[in-house]
């Protein structure tokens, strides 16, 4: 078990972004972990919702679980070269630095598993798709409990 001070030295990094430019402006959702801190930003202009920015510091147990989820997904073995390119509907980005591996993926928004199955790299895209869902679920649970706000699902 590491201490909170160790988290400041740990190079583990994770960032996820999903968003698009549209009739409501730049609408996006983003979260980022680095050095013990999770930052979260959500901008939805629909019905005049405004930008929400939150940050929270987490303990070693949360970080270890975050790492476990990333490791068990084996996302760092994938490559985004054959994934759908970003388009007018928007894009997703996932950047992870873990265990001396560094990935920075970009792809289109994925509406459903049908989109995944149509890809020429369905297996890899499926890893990405489920990892993103599991990460969102974890981060949103933390935000909901810590701040008592409901993040907007995009």
């Amino acid at each position: 078990m590491s201490t909170t001070a160790d988290l400041e030295k740990d190079p583990f990094y994770l960032r996820y972004y999903t968003g698009h430019q549209g009739m409501h402006g730049h609408e996006f959702l983003e979260f980022e972990y680095s050095h013990g801190r999770i930052r979260y930003a959500n901008n939805s202009n629909y019905r005049n919702d405004s930008l929400i920015r939150k940050e929270m510091f987490v303990g070693p147990a949360v970080v270890e679980e975050l790492k476990r989820i990333v490791r068990e997904s084996e996302i760092t073995k994938e490559d985004d070269v054959a994934w759908p390119k970003k388009n007018v509907v928007g894009k997703q980005e996932l950047e992870v630095r873990i265990d001396k591996e560094h990935i920075s993926f970009e792809t289109a928004k994925i509406g459903s598993l049908a989109d995944v199955n149509e890809s020429s790299d369905a297996e890899g895209l499926r890893v990405f798709y489920y990892l993103v869902q599991d990460l969102k679920c974890f981060i949103f649970s933390l935000i909901t409990l810590h701040f008592k706000i409901k993040p907007i699902q995009q």
Binding site: M1, R37, A41, F57, V58, A61, H146
Partner: peptide
Amino acid sequence: KTDFAFSKAPSGARSRAPASGARR
């Protein structure tokens, strides 16, 4: 394993810095 989930901000932490400051 069980532990507290949230931690206080470390003393040296920049608070409320614009996100763009830490971009890699």
